[in-house]
C-alpha cells in the first residue's frame, strides 16, 4: 500500500509528466487559454491514462514479451514480439480516445465543442504513449501501473490548470506584443519547470 501511495505522489509531483519530463506539450500549450477547457481536457487525460496504462501493461505482459505466448502453444514460447509494442500501444490509445470522444459528445456537448480538435488529438498526446513506455521501462506490476496511470494523469491535469490560470491573469499585464500568447506561455512553462526541479531531490 505504501508503495502505491509513493508511486502516485512520485508520478503526480516529483516526476510530473509535463514539468519534469516535458512530454505532452502540444495540447498543454494550445488548450491552456482558459481554465474551464483546461479542466475538461485534464479530466479526459486522467481517464485515458488511467485506462490505457493498465491495459497496455496486460498486453505487454501476456502478449508481447519474450515467452509470453507460451500459454498458447509450447512452440511459441520463444517468440519475442516487443518490437510490436509501439503499434499495439497506440492502437489501444486510439480506440480509447475514440470512446472518450463518444462519451463526452453524448454527456456534455458544451465541453465537446470547447475542446474541438484537441479531443481527438489526445491520441497523439505524447504523455499517453510516454507513460505506457515508462511503465514498461520501470517494470511496474498491474496495481502499480493502474496507480501510475492515474497519478500521471492527475499531474498532467494539475499542470495544465495551473498554466491556464496564470495565462488568464496574464491577459491584463503589459507584455511586448510579439511575445504575447504563445511566446510568454513557453517562458512561463520553463519557469514552472524550474520550480518543479526543486522537488527532484525527494526520494520516496
Amino acid at each position: 500500500m505504501q508503495d502505491l501511495v509513493n508511486i502516485f505522489i512520485k508520478s503526480a509531483f516529483i516526476e510530473n509528466l509535463i514539468l519534469a519530463y516535458y512530454i505532452g506539450m502540444c495540447s498543454f500549450l494550445a488548450v491552456s487559454k482558459t481554465v474551464k477547457t483546461a479542466i475538461g481536457l485534464g479530466a479526459a487525460v486522467i481517464f485515458v491514462l488511467g485506462i490505457t496504462v493498465p491495459v497496455n501493461y496486460l498486453l505487454q505482459q501476456y502478449l508481447l514479451v519474450e515467452g509470453a505466448l507460451g500459454w498458447l502453444h509450447p512452440s511459441l514460447a520463444t517468440v519475442d514480439l516487443t518490437f510490436l509494442s509501439f503499434i499495439v500501444f497506440i492502437a489501444v490509445i486510439a480506440s480509447m480516445v475514440q470512446l472518450v470522444e463518444m462519451v463526452i459528445e453524448k454527456s456534455s456537448p458544451a465541453l465537446y465543442n470547447a475542446l474541438g480538435i484537441f479531443l481527438p488529438l489526445i491520441t497523439v498526446n505524447c504523455a499517453i504513449l510516454g507513460a505506457a513506455l515508462f511503465m514498461v521501462q520501470r517494470e511496474y506490476n498491474f496495481a502499480e501501473s493502474v496507480v501510475y496511470g492515474l497519478g500521471g494523469g492527475f499531474g498532467w491535469a494539475l499542470a495544465i490548470v495551473a498554466l491556464a490560470s496564470i495565462r488568464e491573469k496574464l491577459r491584463y499585464s503589459a507584455i511586448p506584443a510579439p511575445l504575447r500568447g504563445l511566446g510568454i506561455a513557453f517562458i512561463i512553462t520553463g519557469l514552472m519547470g524550474i520550480a518543479f526541479m526543486s522537488l527532484m531531490g525527494i526520494k520516496l
Partner: peptide, 11 residues
C-alpha cells in the same frame, strides 16, 4: 535542463 529549451523557443 529542458527549461532552457522553453526559454530559447520562446525567444
Amino acid at each position: 535542463t529542458p527549461a532552457a529549451a522553453m526559454f530559447i523557443i520562446g525567444i
